[in-house]
């Protein structure tokens, strides 16, 4: 079972993240620390071991399902946030449009015309 070995690696990196946070007090989630550590390890080894790929690929494919229990929660707090929804929606929609425009404009300036300079 290579996937099981890979899964153990993923769990271990997450636990290492917890330990790092405990001792440093960094305000980052242990998943992110584990992710960076995994990326660094793979870069040092120069390849992705079969076991890690076997565990990581199905987990990434299932991400949408793993966040679903949380997504459903939003329907149950609608009542609590009564009166706040318009502000939240305007902020999200308008903010996203502005941010997309800025991103694309910046990228066009920086990458779009590589021969200008």
């Amino acid at each position: 079972m290579p996937a099981l070995g890979g899964f153990l690696w993923l769990i271990s990196y997450w636990l290492i993240g917890e330990v790092v946070i405990h001792f440093t007090g960094l305000p980052i989630s242990s998943g992110v620390i584990g992710m960076l550590l995994l990326c660094a390890t793979l870069a040092v080894r120069g390849r992705v071991p079969t076991s890690i790929a076997a565990a990581a690929q199905p987990l990434i494919a299932l991400l949408a399902m793993l966040i679903m229990p949380g997504v459903v929660g939003v329907f149950f707090i609608i009542g609590e946030l009564a009166g706040q929804w318009t502000a939240i929606l305007i902020a999200l929609v308008l903010g996203t449009l502005l941010s997309v425009l800025t991103t694309l404009w910046l990228l066009k300036r920086l990458i779009g015309q590589p021969h200008v300079r």
């Binding site: 997450w14 998943g31 990581a56 793993l66």
Partner: peptide, 21 residues
């Protein structure tokens, strides 16, 4: 029982990140 897997799933994102280095 499902959401606890988000931890290792986040760590797993290190793999595509490495592949895009």
């Amino acid at each position: 029982w499902l959401t606890v897997l988000l931890g290792p799933a986040t760590v797993a994102l290190g793999m595509p990140l490495y592949q895009q280095l």
